[in-house]
Design a protein around this nucleic acid. Structure first.
Length: 181
DNA sequence: CAGAAGATCGGG
DNA sequence: CCGATCTTCTGC
């Protein structure tokens, strides 16, 4: 398989960049989930969205510091999970320095498309809130690459944020290599 | 403390 | 297009 190197991405990778950079940089990286019985799911990230701080009216951080957004204010490299519509656990990765509330939403993997489906497939739940990606034995990200063009579009499901923020091209999707014909 | 809304998905 | 299903935040 192309681009698999088996090296876990270290904390600085998540701390030293903002979510806009990391949302695209995480495309092609390998998400690894290890279950209690040792079984692992490995799948490369194919779709992300960036959420940028308190001024971003589409972000949960728009209302400032609350119990839920607390982890977004922490140093990058931790997991932010939350329950949406009472049904789906959405997986996010906190990015940037401490006191900078940003995160990247993982919307799709090679083998699983859609943020709700990703959470279900990886068996996310509230216990992953604040999980450190640099030391966890349950979830982490490994360096890898994948070929293909990265497309940007507006973020999904954020109409409530108003035209300015809803139209930011902060969704990143990997377009698979064209098949020859 | 009640009420509304939500970074979604699947079924009709 | 609508219902599911429950946490979070707001406003009274």
């Amino acid at each position: 398989m192309e681009g698999i190197t088996n090296s876990r991405l270290p904390k600085p990778f998540f701390v030293n960049h903002d979510s806009l950079f990391l949302a695209s940089a995480l495309i092609g990286k390998t998400l690894v989930r290890q279950f209690e019985d040792g079984h692992r799911i490995r799948s490369r990230i194919t779709e992300t969205e960036a959420y940028l701080g308190v001024e971003d009216l589409a972000s949960h951080a728009r209302r400032g510091r609350t119990p839920r957004t607390e982890v977004m204010y922490a140093e990058g490299g931790q997991v932010y999970v939350y329950l949406i519509y009472g049904i789906h656990w959405l997986l996010n990765i906190v990015t940037g320095a401490e006191e900078s509330p940003q995160a990247v939403l993982i919307r799709g993997l090679e083998h699983c498309s859609g943020p709700g489906r990703v959470g279900k497939w990886l068996k996310m739940d509230s216990s992953f809130y604040g999980e450190p990606l640099d030391t966890s034995n349950r979830i982490w990200v490994e360096d890898s690459s994948i070929s293909g063009e990265i497309i940007t579009t507006a973020r999904i499901g954020v109409d409530f944020a108003g035209p300015i923020w809803k139209n930011k091209p902060w969704r990143f999707v990997l377009r698979p290599k064209q098949k020859s014909r």
